[in-house]
């Protein structure tokens, strides 16, 4: 099992965001679906130990996440946040920075290619990119540490259909080419069925169903 959440609860600002949530996500292609405000992003951040639950356990490949070194976990399990948040400077600068943190040799050309960006983007200032382009750089940057798992939070919510299709193709390609497991958060059921084999559905911080696409989204 890739991730297992056992009776996880989390409060934010005094109100419950996740309540008694038990979720299993196997290796492969996973989606977390649910309406806006249901706690999807909060759940995804737990998988990367960007926060810890108030109660309950999060396990990554059988080990309690609290026992793992968060820095090593995050290099192995890369999270791409919902909103692009690049560092000031060029695209290549961001990619090199991430590779350095991940302890890898930066291969800017290769990262741009898997992110679906052409080589001319290397020298572009990130402040002058469209949101869709920034989102791609975020994905490319997350790959710089050569992660085994990719957590994607609404990777296409700000994009038109064509850009969305092309990012979805990139995600599937990543899974097939480097064998990375994927957890994608989306409010779009159709997208979940295009991208995932296994789905967890949450509403108001509670699990309302998990299983194969056919079982849950039928």
């Amino acid at each position: 099992m890739l991730f297992e959440l056992e009776r996880v609860s989390l409060r934010r600002g005094g109100k419950p965001v996740l309540t008694d949530l038990s979720v299993r996500l196997p290796d492969g292609l996973n989606a977390i679906v649910g309406p806006s405000g249901s706690g999807k992003s909060t759940l995804l951040r737990l998988l990367d130990r960007l926060s810890d639950p108030d109660s309950g356990t999060v396990r990554y490949r059988g080990t309690d996440a609290r026992e793992l070194d968060p820095l090593r976990l995050r290099r192995e399990v890369a999270l791409v946040p919902q909103l692009p948040a690049l560092l000031d400077g060029t695209v290549a600068g961001n990619l090199r920075f991430a590779a350095e943190i991940g302890g890898r040799e930066p291969d800017v050309a290769h990262l741009l290619e898997v992110g679906g960006l052409d080589a001319s983007f290397a020298t572009r200032d990130v402040a002058r990119l469209s949101v869709g382009e920034q989102q791609r750089v975020m994905i490319a940057r997350a790959l710089a540490s050569e992660p085994r798992v990719l957590l994607l939070d609404e990777p296409t919510s700000a994009l038109d259909e064509r850009a969305r299709d092309s990012i979805e193709a990139t995600i599937l390609d990543l899974h097939h080419r480097i064998g990375a497991s994927i957890v994608v958060v989306t409010h779009d059921i159709a997208q979940a069925s295009r991208l995932a084999d296994w789905v967890a559905k949450i509403e108001r911080g509670r699990l309302v169903g998990q299983g194969t696409i056919a079982e849950v989204l039928a």
Partner: peptide, 13 residues
């Protein structure tokens, strides 16, 4: 905050 957290997500201290 969003940028700081995105950097943490890369495995930065």
């Amino acid at each position: 905050a969003a940028r700081v957290e995105a950097t943490l997500a890369l495995g930065a201290t």
